[in-house]
Amino acid sequence: MDTTARPRLPRLPLGAAFPPPPGPGAPGDPGVCAPGAFREVTAERAVVLGGPAAILLQVAHPLVAEGVAVHSDYTAGPAHRLLATLQAALTVTFGDTEQARAAAREVGAQHARVRGTTRAAVPGTPAGTPYRAGDPDLALWVHATLVWTARRVAERYLGRVLDAAEREEHWRGSWPFARLFAVPQAVLPPTAADFERYWERSVAGLVVTDAARTVAGGILTQRTRPPLPGVAALARSVTADLLPPSVADAYGLARTPGRRAAAGAARALLRTARPALPDRVARWPHAAVAERRLAAAPAAPAPAAG
């Protein structure tokens, strides 16, 4: 991927990759997303490796790419927004009911202004095609990228391969998350097998536009503060490994021997290390907060005044 002409983005503080959990919340409140496979997969810190792949998949839909190009200010650095999205997703998944709804409302308010029509034609999408962030089909696609990439990271980098029943539980467990982010139940594929068919059809219809390549360039050349040499190169290697081959090729992310070796080394390291790591290191602290909240007894109601 040629990034030589792109501006140098602000450095990303490493602390931004470790978002703090929300407060303890209401004792006994399970939150919006029930315990199960969806929360178990999302709890792993390693799923953040799939963030760049999820963003690239999202903007490979021309209407999503147009909305991002017109309504986002990329001078602040796209990785900053990726991590803001991560924090919102973790709060919705592990927060209590009100925390989850508040996080979703904040995202919804930001998305409310994202609407317009495409400025140029691309294959399958004529110029002047309307788009809006709240469109159910676009919201479903964004949700699908998050579900698919998290599961793919778990399988490839943690060795957490879901069997058929677990895939069903993982997909259905994501529904409350989806509905809170403007995905109506009516458009959600009813089974995991239906989701797989939806995914294959959708990937076959993706088109990587210049707007999408601009987003990809920012995501995959992000610099950190303090500097960590090799982070951007590793991100490109892992993203090329995670993406469907057709999408990786469209972005110019060739799976070179060097990238395959880097991704393979990352897979081997994480698969070996994960069983030995304590949960407080390997999992987001949001998950532990949710477990403590769920185990706590709800406060007893105040006695009626005599």
Rank of each mutant, 00 (worst) to 15 (best):
A287S: 15
V48I: 15
R260K: 15
R105F: 05
R6P: 06
R115P: 00
A133M: 02
L63D: 00
R132A: 02
G230R: 04
L146D: 01
Q87L: 05
T75F: 11
G28Q: 07
P52N: 01
Y198H: 06
P189Y: 13
L90W: 08
L294Q: 10
T149V: 10
E291M: 10
V281A: 14
P298W: 11
L158M: 10
A102W: 10
L9C: 09
L56E: 05
P301T: 03
P229W: 02
A268F: 11
Q99A: 14
F18M: 11
S174C: 04
A69M: 07
G134V: 06
A290P: 05
G15T: 07
V92L: 00
Q87P: 04
G173E: 00
E155M: 09
V203C: 09
D241F: 08
H80N: 13
P176Y: 00
I55F: 05
R293V: 07
A46R: 09
R45D: 12
T191H: 12
E200R: 15
A76N: 05
T3W: 11
A211Y: 06
W199N: 09
V122E: 03
A165N: 11
R115N: 01
A65I: 06
P227Y: 04
R156V: 08
L228R: 10
P176D: 00
G108F: 00
A261E: 10
S202P: 10
L188E: 04
G159Y: 12
G258K: 12
A305V: 15
L57P: 06
V238G: 13
S72V: 03
A212N: 13
G173I: 00
A261N: 11
P229Q: 03
A69Y: 08
V68H: 00
A211V: 07
A43D: 14
G124F: 04
A121T: 08
P136R: 09
V70E: 08
L294W: 09
P7K: 03
P27E: 10
L49T: 11
L243K: 11
E44Y: 10
L82M: 09
V161E: 15
H111E: 00
P7D: 04
P176Q: 00
A295W: 05
R119Q: 14
V107K: 00
E66C: 01
A133K: 01
V247N: 07
A164F: 10
T125E: 03
E200D: 15
L269W: 14
T129V: 04
T129C: 02
D210F: 11
P130A: 01
A103D: 01
V289D: 02
T209E: 12
D137E: 13
D2S: 08
H111L: 02
V215C: 11
E291Y: 08
V41L: 01
H61L: 08
P30S: 00
L162W: 02
R151C: 08
A133L: 02
Y251E: 04
D2Q: 09
P278D: 11
W284G: 12
T85Q: 07
L234S: 12
A290N: 04
P24F: 11
G67V: 03
L9N: 13
C33T: 03
W171E: 01
